[in-house]
Structure formats: C-alpha cells, structure tokens
Computed example of a mutant assay.
Amino acid sequence: MRALRPATVAAIAAATAVTAVSGCAAKNDGKGGSDKGTIEVTASDTSCELSAKEFPAGHVRFAVQNKGSKVTEVYVYASGDRIVTERENIGPGTRTEISAEIKAGSYEIACKPGMKGDGIRQKVTASGKGGATKRDPKLDAAVAAYRKYVQDQADQTLPAARKFADAVKDGDVEAAKKTYALSRVGWERTEPVAESFGDIDPKVDVRADGLEKGQKWTGWHKLEKSLWEEKKISGDDKKLAAQLITDLKDWQKRVGKAEITPTSMANGAKELLDEVATGKVTGEEERYSHTDLLDFHGNVEGAEKAYELLKPVVAKNDPALAKELDKQFKAIGGLLDEHRDSKSADGFASYETVDKGERKKLSDGVNSLGEPLSKLAAAVAGAK
C-alpha cells in the first residue's frame, strides 16, 4: 500500500524529477502545451485542471504537469472508483505522461497532492467507439496470458496465506514470522490489478499511516506489527487472520474478471516500480519485519512479466526501448541477487542489514528502470 510518511514524500520528490521530465520531454513544448489530442492535466496543491472534459474513446494520452509544492499522483476512475490507470510520484515542477485505453463512458480524474485521500476530482466523458478498435492479435494474446498469470498468482497465494493465518490462529509467533513474507509474493507481483477493484487493497495491505478516517486496521501489516513489534498474538489477531483469508478469497474470485488491456498491463508494470520506489527501497512497507527485499523482488517479477508478454509488439514499435528495458531488468535483477540469503526463510537478507550505500544503489537501479518503463504504454499504443 502506498501511503507515505511526510519525510518519504519529500525524499522522493528529487528522485522523481529527472524521471518525470526525461520521460515526457519529447511530448511537451516546454510552454505547457502538448501534442494534439493529448489531454493536459495541470495539478497543484489545491486544483486539478483539465484541457478537456470530453474526448474520444480509445487510446488516450494524459500530459500531467505538477505545479504544486507536494508530490502528487493522478488517477482515472471508472464507476465505483475502479482504477483504470494511475501514475504516482509526480514531483513538484515535473511533467509525465500516461497512455491508457479508455472505453466510452463516464469517468473521474483525480489529482492527489501529498498522495493521500480521495483527491481533487473532475468528471470527464469518453465518447464514440474508439475503445472497440481491433488491435494487434499479439496484444490480445498478451492480455490473455497476463489474465492467466494474475489468476495463477491469486490461486497460489491462498495456500501460502493459509499457512500464515493458521500459524497466527495457533498462536505460534515463530511459525507465523517464517510464513509471513512468503504469503505476500503473489499479491506483490500483481498488486495493480488487485488495487483496481478499490476495496480489497485497503482491507489486506494498508499500513497504519495509510488508514482513512474511521477505518479499522486489518490485513497483513497489522499482523506484522503484532508479530515483530509486540512479539505476541492476541485474540483479535487470530480474528484478523481469519478475515485476511476471507478477503483474499474475494480477491481470488474477482481477479479473473478484472478489466485488463495492453496499456493497463504496461501502466501496471510502472506502478509496480513506483511501489518499489516509495515503499520497498525506503523500508516503509515492511517496517516491522524488514522483509522488504522479497516484496521488492515480487514487484520487479510482476513488472517484468507484463513487459515480456508485451515485448513482441514493443520490440516492433520501439526496438531501442525494448533493448533498454532488457538491459535494466537484468541490472536490477543482479542488484537483488547481491542480497540473497539462503539461511533466511524468504531467501533474502533482512533489510535492516542493507546499509545506506547499498540502498542508494538499489534506488538508482529502480530509477534507471523506471524511466524507460514509463514509456512502455506509449510503445504498446504504437507511439514513440
């Protein structure tokens, strides 16, 4: 879950600036303008302005500029707050671009200064039949394969989560600790799809500082705190373990019905790298167990899977981008391999043992991959 401490928000602003600017420099004229047909989104700390509130359905590009003082994020919501696409970590004074496949219908675009809350929202309409345009059969094959992948990850998560939940219900702290991180791998690989439903992620993966007003804290991280900080399992924790399985079963049942498009796969890959940048590299995500490296690895695996399935089309539309992504995925994999630990229950060293210098190397690796990955959706849509 992406809720951030204020210090973390400030820290990532500088890191996102280079990526955001370089990722869209070719698309903007430096004066706030953008290519014809692109919807301009101008975000500030108090507003979310759009160049148009009605546009043709189909492949839509949003050129986002953050004129505020806070790191922001931009969401496109369908009915029921189902996430169509999003882009996080847009630093003050920077620009980025989002490409998405939008069907005809009514939507809301939300800018979220500080990356919290419901955001500042604008109602928009996609009109016409552009979303029904026939696409490359290779992209249809990629979507079908990815749909199977996300379902398989959910199916594999339930047995691992049951081992964890059973250990909690048995009051066995050590067994629960050993199975905690492993129970999260499938979720971390496919988190953007799970988050697209809107209501499941806050139940199972929210951190204490991500709670909305009046929200009860449930899910993995509440149990993580009990196991590592409180070092005991309460009666309430046993109930929460049972509820975690109920909520994950809901995810497992619904994930096969998720709306998946080639651009949502590409944007989801970038979202997974954003998860790494804002939660794993900083140590925010697993602040009690320090099992961040396995989460990190899961996020990268999920991003690489989406890319590999889209690669036949990307390599045709933008061979230089495909070459760079191959290089950067290999590089980040090598950096993670340096922190493997065969004696650890989850196969990686505790993040507590990773010093500032090593964390900087990991952060730099994420940024090096994140920049070309931000161009993946545009390459899928046939634009360079």
Rank of each mutant, 00 (worst) to 15 (best):
A331K: 06
K148M: 08
D166K: 09
K239W: 00
K123I: 01
A165N: 04
R287T: 06
A142K: 00
K177H: 07
A208F: 07
A379M: 02
A320C: 04
G219Q: 10
D292I: 11
G357E: 15
T94C: 04
D205I: 07
F296V: 10
S79A: 13
A57P: 15
A266P: 05
C111I: 08
V84Q: 08
A266R: 09
A17P: 02
K257S: 14
A126V: 03
P262D: 13
L309C: 07
E284R: 10
V255M: 05
P56T: 04
A277D: 12
A303I: 13
R135E: 14
E88S: 05
L240Q: 15
G58E: 06
I109K: 09
K361Y: 08
K67Y: 06
C48H: 03
V204W: 05
I98G: 00
Q153M: 12
D170T: 05
G210W: 01
L321T: 08
F55A: 10
S264P: 02
K103D: 15
A277Q: 12
F62Q: 00
A160D: 15
A144K: 15
T19R: 13
V380Y: 01
V143K: 11
D140P: 10
D341W: 12
G268D: 10
L336Q: 01
V255P: 01
N317T: 03
G283E: 06
A78M: 07
T190G: 01
R254H: 07
G117H: 04
A322M: 06
H59C: 06
K305V: 11
K129G: 10
I39S: 12
D337P: 00
R95D: 04
T353R: 13
E259Q: 11
V168H: 04
V64E: 14
T179P: 00
V9C: 09
S34L: 07
E230L: 09
G30V: 12
Y75K: 05
G334S: 03
V366G: 03
V150M: 03
E212Y: 04
T353Q: 02
E174G: 02
G268R: 03
E301V: 14
G32V: 06
F329Y: 14
